[in-house]
Each structure stands twice: as C-alpha cells, then as structure tokens.
Simulated assay, not measured.
Amino acid sequence: MSQELQQSQGVTTGLQSQGHVGSSHNPRVGRPISMRILLADDHGMVRETISAYLTTEGRAAVVAGSDYFEAMKLLEQKGPFDLVLLDFSMPGMNGLQGLIDAVAAYPDQAFAIVSGTAPNKVAQDALEAGAIGFLPKTMGAKSLVNAVRFMIAGETFVPASVLASGGEAAESDFEKQLSQREKQVLSGLCKGHSNKEIARELDLQEVTIKLHVRTLCKKLNAKNRTQAALIAKEAGFE
C-alpha cells in the first residue's frame, strides 16, 4: 500500500463493502476481472485515461458515461457496481446535489467523487453527503487503482494531501503558471466554447478573450486552442 493510502487511513470508517467483486473475464486485458466500475465524466480524454488505468492496472470492467443523467441511466440498467465514480463538475451534478440525489436513490451503492479543480473542502462535504471517497484527477495510475480497491474493500479514502490542506484548494504546478482570468478562459476552451461564448460568460470583450487564448497557447506551448485544451485536460484541469 502506498504512503498516500497509509496516510489516508485517518479517515477510514470501517464501512462494510458495498459491492460484489466479480470473477468474469475482460477480453481487453486477458485476465480475470476483479471489480466493476461505473465512471462518469464529461471530458472524453479523462474518461479514457482513467478507464485505461482501471482496466490495465486494476483488471476492472469499466462502464463509462458522459454526464450525470447518463450515469444514473447506466446505474439503473447495469448496476449495481462495486463503485460509481462521479465527476464533481460534469453536467447534471449541480455540485454535490447530484451525489445527494444518487445516494438517496441507490442507498446500497458505493459512490465516490472525482475532481481536478474542486476546492478540497468538497472532499469533506462529499463524505458528509454519503460518498466513500474523493479522488483528485492528478493521481497516478497505481495510486488511483489502489484507492479504488481500498474503497471497494469497504473503507473511505481521501488523499493525505487533501487532508493536510486544511480545506483550502491546493493548486497544481500546472495551475500556478496561470492567472485567475487565464484559468477561467482555459476552462471555457476545455468545454469547447467559442471566444464569443467565453466573452459573454465572463462579461468581457471578445478581443480580450482572443488575447488570453494567445497567451495561454504560448504558456502551454500549444499550437492552437484545441491543443491547449487537450494539454489542460491531460494535466487534470477542468
């Protein structure tokens, strides 16, 4: 078990396992499946990356959805799962209200929140709302798989780095290089919004957004706005 997992045991609750570990076969990896996971995230690259981690490193069978509503439909049709991972910022979540509603609808299902930029205070709020864990998207493959296994075993997981932050958001090295306005513009790029849409959302002139996009491309060493968004998503930025 990693040091991060060992440190996280300060929030272990000793919950009983809320899912059955299957023994079916996953043709993608040619090894027995050890767990069934439902992952919901509106960023395709993030979904694919986390799914790959869980499939190759964790021998998991992953069912993926692109928003909260699709996740609930998949849960109804294909559940229960050993664990359901919900992106904090995806469409339909409405912050933690989506989690609260999901827990109420499926009280015997284990849920955890996944996030790249949510304030760390959300981790504690998520636990109080019924989640059994909080996973930053910046976690490495092995740490992520270990954390998922930890939760499926019936424990609660929150990274030590989140607990040590005192509830304040810990900026990644990627975010530290950007101004607050640049992060807002980059968030719009990651959502696929046009300069005009971002300008309207931030109450700025479109020409100002163009300047910010140019600066972002230079800082991120990106050839264009699309590549800037891909670089940001790979870094766990939402």
Rank of each mutant, 00 (worst) to 15 (best):
S8H: 07
S8D: 05
G10I: 15
G10L: 15
G10M: 13
V11W: 02
V11Y: 03
T12I: 01
T12A: 14
T12L: 06
T12P: 00
T12R: 15
T13W: 05
T13P: 00
G14F: 07
G14N: 10
G14A: 08
L15E: 14
L15Y: 13
L15K: 10
L15H: 14
Q16T: 12
Q16N: 12
Q16I: 04
Q16R: 14
S17A: 15
S17Y: 01
Q18S: 12
Q18I: 01
Q18K: 15
G19N: 13
G19S: 12
H20Y: 11
H20D: 14
H20S: 12
H20L: 13
H20R: 11
V21Y: 01
V21N: 04
V21W: 02
G22E: 04
S23N: 12
S23H: 14
S23A: 09
S24W: 13
S24N: 11
S24D: 14
S24V: 07
H25L: 14
H25I: 08
N26M: 08
N26S: 12
P27A: 09
P27H: 09
P27N: 06
R28Y: 09
R28E: 13
R28W: 08
R28I: 06
V29A: 02
V29Y: 00
G30K: 03
G30L: 07
R31N: 01
R31Y: 03
P32A: 10
I33F: 00
S34A: 10
S34Y: 01
R36C: 02
R36F: 00
I37F: 07
I37W: 04
L39D: 03
L39H: 09
A40K: 02
D41S: 07
D41K: 07
D41E: 13
D42W: 05
D42V: 02
D42F: 04
D42S: 10
H43M: 03
H43Q: 11
H43I: 00
H43E: 05
H43L: 03
M45Y: 02
M45L: 11
M45C: 00
M45R: 09
